[in-house]
């Protein structure tokens, strides 16, 4: 699956990192890092991460 985060919109809430730690993490500087092509087995968590993003910055493209 392909994941894109609009980093101009992202406000580093970190909810995605709670929902899908396999694909998203907040680094020690407090900024988002993510895997743009997480394994299909993580789809449910990644969908959850997109849902719980307070600013809806996460798009799943396939």
């Amino acid at each position: 699956m392909r994941v894109v985060v609009d980093l101009a919109t992202c406000q580093d809430h970190g909810q995605c990192a709670i929902a899908a730690p396999e694909a998203f993490r907040i680094n020690d500087a407090g900024a988002l890092e993510y895997d743009g092509s997480p394994g299909e087995e993580h789809r449910e968590h990644v969908e959850e991460a997109a849902d719980v993003c307070p600013v809806q910055a996460i798009t799943i493209e396939d």
Partner: peptide
């Protein structure tokens, strides 16, 4: 508090 430090509190 930056989000990188939220997890243990949650």
């Amino acid at each position: 508090i930056p989000a990188s430090r939220h997890r243990p509190y949650r």
